[in-house]
């Protein structure tokens, strides 16, 4: 696989405790990849090692085809967690400085700074100094600087944490836009957001990799179908169970939800199978409340960690 980031046996200890423990991770190029895990799972340390801020005790890291000792600077950008810019400098000064350091000529640096500050809603606060920024504004500064230029790999540690819904939406849109040309690695506790945003995910727990897969495989989009019906009749359940490609049918929760395990037969597409399932339900006059393909990421996360 052509990987933007590849780690093997990556280990980092703090005070004798392995915070990241033999991590083998592969982030495919041009993917929108989520790094998930409970608090203390080692996500931030993994980010910091990929960025070269923190040295691993053992293992290897390859970033955009280069070993971590020769990190391809300016081709990577990051939103580091808990990083604060100089308290005495204004947002604008700092953004121009970073844009120029990114290698952008002064006129382009100014236009880029303007663009990213507008995206994160920080344009009106550009004259505030670092020490005058609230937590939310400081976070927006961090996100904005990660969007400067045209990086090939963007690492965002909790990008929407502390942002109001409007700015969080703008940042998500920006992430989607960047993912058209770059690999984006996101860490977040907001699983609904990650599920909606990302196409791949890895789950860490206590420094170890629990699983890593495309989002569709992780949530079982091709294996699970949930139907919420006004009333689940015996006839509907039996008819569904007899459909080719349906492995099992279970009634869940309050008796209004059907959980179908699917495995398409040879030559049968998953979309065709889902359509057949819905036709059976409609033909039997059942009222459909909702249809969900795959399990919620949150359910899988709770199962695995």
């Amino acid at each position: 696989m052509d990987a933007a980031v590849r780690t093997s046996g990556l280990t980092r200890r703090y005070g004798g405790r392995a915070v990241v423990d033999g991590l083998d991770l592969e982030v495919p190029r041009r993917s929108l990849f989520a790094l998930l895990g409970p608090n203390g799972a080692g996500k931030t340390t993994t980010f910091a090692m990929i960025c070269g801020f923190v040295r691993p005790h053992s293992g290897r890291i390859e970033v955009l085809g280069q070993p971590s000792s020769r990190l391809p600077l300016r081709r990577i950008s990051a939103l580091p967690q808990d990083a604060h810019f100089h308290p005495e400098r204004t947002v604008w000064d700092a953004m121009i400085f970073l844009a120029e350091l990114q290698g952008l000529p002064p006129p382009r640096a100014r236009s880029e700074a303007t663009r990213v500050l507008e995206v994160v809603g920080l344009w009106d606060s550009r004259h505030l100094r670092g020490r005058e920024l609230s937590h939310g504004l400081a976070k927006r500064f961090g996100v904005a600087q990660a969007f400067l230029g045209e990086p090939e790999l963007v690492l965002l540690d909790e990008p929407t944490e502390g942002l109001d819904p409007r700015n969080a939406h703008a940042v998500r849109e920006m992430i989607r836009q960047m993912a058209r040309t770059a690999t984006v690695l996101v860490s977040s506790h907001n699983l609904a957001e990650v599920e909606d945003l990302c196409d791949h995910a890895a789950i860490l727990d206590r420094g170890r990799l629990v699983t890593q897969a495309p989002m569709a495989d992780l949530t079982g989009q091709d294996q699970h179908l949930f139907l919420r019906l006004a009333e689940v009749g015996h006839e509907v359940a039996t008819a569904l169970a007899s459909l080719p490609g349906v492995r099992s049918v279970e009634t869940e929760e309050d008796g209004h939800r059907l959980h179908l395990m699917l495995r398409p037969t040879e030559g049968q597409s998953i979309d065709r199978l889902v359509t057949d399932v819905l036709r059976v339900v409609i033909d039997r006059g059942a009222l459909i409340g909702s249809v969900t393909r795959g399990r919620r990421l949150e359910e899988r996360f709770l199962e695995l960690t």
Binding site: C51, G52, F53, A83, H84, L101, G103
Partner: peptide, 11 residues
């Protein structure tokens, strides 16, 4: 204050 982290991916 980790401000170096904003700089270290650029130089």
């Amino acid at each position: 204050n980790r401000s170096t982290r904003f700089v270290l991916l650029r130089t």
